[in-house]
Nucleic acid binder design. Sequence first.
DNA 1: AAAACTCGTGAATCCCCTG
DNA 2: GCAGGGGATTCACGAGTTT
Lengths: 375, 375
Amino acid sequence: MVPVSALKTKAASPQRAEWIDTIIKGDCVAALEALPDHSVDAIFADPPYNLQLGGVLHRPDQSKVDAVDDEWDRFASFEAYDAFTTAWLLACRRVLKPSGTIWVIGSYHNIFRVGAKMQDLGFWILNDIVWRKTNPMPNFKGRRFQNAHETMIWASPDADARGYTFNYDAMKAANDDVQMRSDWLFPICSGGERLKGEDGKKVHPTQKPEALLSRIILSSTKPGDVVLDPFLGSGTTAAVAKRLGRHFVGVEREQDYIDAASARIAEVEPLPDDMLAPTPSKKSLPRVAFLSLIESGLLSAGDRLTSPKGDLAAHVRADGTLASGADSGSIHRLGARIQGAEACNGWTFWHYEEGGERYPIDRLRGRIRAAMAST
Amino acid sequence: MVPVSALKTKAASPQRAEWIDTIIKGDCVAALEALPDHSVDAIFADPPYNLQLGGVLHRPDQSKVDAVDDEWDRFASFEAYDAFTTAWLLACRRVLKPSGTIWVIGSYHNIFRVGAKMQDLGFWILNDIVWRKTNPMPNFKGRRFQNAHETMIWASPDADARGYTFNYDAMKAANDDVQMRSDWLFPICSGGERLKGEDGKKVHPTQKPEALLSRIILSSTKPGDVVLDPFLGSGTTAAVAKRLGRHFVGVEREQDYIDAASARIAEVEPLPDDMLAPTPSKKSLPRVAFLSLIESGLLSAGDRLTSPKGDLAAHVRADGTLASGADSGSIHRLGARIQGAEACNGWTFWHYEEGGERYPIDRLRGRIRAAMAST
DNA sequence: AAAACTCGTGAATCCCCTG
DNA sequence: GCAGGGGATTCACGAGTTT
């Protein structure tokens, strides 16, 4: 374990476990034994791709392509790779909270095997996300399509998992107010962001762009969460987590990578809290009872409410229910029944009249909430 | 076997086998026994996805989503699905020429299992191709990213396969003279192309767009080649193959689909030889997420944006929203609220400062688009 | 006649808290 | 653990209708 105090994020608290905000040196499976069950909120895993590259690849100008041929990317067989995959996935699932989620990135060389194994082990896939590269390496031989993307799998630890974090509203607001899609566009990591050694050579062959990790962390974690990267490499996950006010824990086998990542993380300045506050979702707004509208005088018993078009009507009763003929119930239940629907959001369905205009009663709820906020 | 003479393509030759340009009725594995070894040049397979859907899903307007719940998409377990996959993949490989290639399409529900099984059986993956949908169904409950793509695997029957067809230059010419990438953009099949029954309902729940098959066939087959579709369904593969001067053979279990596909194929007029050119697609300006400006470093969390005159201000937050005092939201929503307006185009309203001058953030969006276009 | 508006729909693994 | 109920949730098109 490498407790680098400079790595600590500002969100640190005294009672925090000692492995938080550190890089653990060692093999992924063995190193994760240092963590208790269900202790991390999210995992980003960038496992070896098992590229199975043949000979040396040359560009048209005869220059040599610097392929990933490191020892850690070589496996004897698909079976060996599958056994490796099973081992680290199980270790990850043990330390992942039931409400947590895991991201795994890969290419066509390995992602199908990893995805199938995840399903076999009971992980429940939430999305597969495509990272479209703005600047992928060309196919030099002209024998295939340009391999211009990588695939990520986002999954919960089991099919029944509830309550995982997905910052839907933040993603939508950040995407021109339409839902964020499963295809993301980012440049590959290059330029100043790419870690280089003193020899000017890249420190790690597959350093991921911070933008990619940023979207992952912003979408599926909350400030203060702990993000695990079992194959930390150059430390992108940890650096971005720290910047975004999350805790991290990384596992890495090679000292060179640990050194580079530690230095990188230490330089990261967390963003101020008010830049990280989660975008409020409607679900997170304070609950307002319909009865409060009557109690505060915004509506009165006997008032007439209608459907949006005004063709269906009901009357407000003193106890906060609605009545229509012999039928009565909550704003939601009566709204559903009166339309013959299975469900209904009474706040947006029922309308009141003011100055000749119809408005949803949600407008009145807004006034209550505004009054609550100002006190 | 259903020898529909009207289906014959113009490239027909007298010594052709009788199963060419026909639809064979029956289970995929059994039906393929009618074909000799190594007799087809390419395969497009759209197997059941094994969606494993739960209950009924409603849209926000309470309408029901017409889910794929057909009998043919139900499997007892992953093991049953894997056995099915193995069987049809082996049958396909037997009839595929050594120089041929196979395409398989799927979603995250099944594509990882299929891909892993293909590798296990010795198929050699050449590319995975992402079909990005211009108009995918939204995620109605806001619990995941919008599932906006499907994945195709393009593979040769074994690792040593040589001489497979890839029309590199045609693809490049069709793509503004840069290499065709592994991510393709097409609308889903709708409008006049979608086969409808007399009741006005869709004939097949998962009809694929002709544009998709067109690119597949144009990229990896030659005129006169034989294209097999072991799950023919509504017949898109056969119809496109015939139009493009290729032969086809389809396998399908259900008579209703066979009838619809036969009628559809009969109506297809093969293109004249000199017209068999790929269709270039001009795309409109790509959507850029405001978050991309932060992710790409053009803006940073905490940066100050102002109204055109500089009298109103907000701060950029890490998740791609803006904050002004206690208020926050997308660039559009906050822009509207801060002006007291109903709507606002945040791209032209919000300005940043550079060298003492104010510029709309639309200028930064332009830079992102320029970077995208240059790749 | 043209524009605006409404309505339907697509391979979907789609809620969460309280009693 | 289960049942009940509050109440949150959609994008791009094509087709048809109204203004």
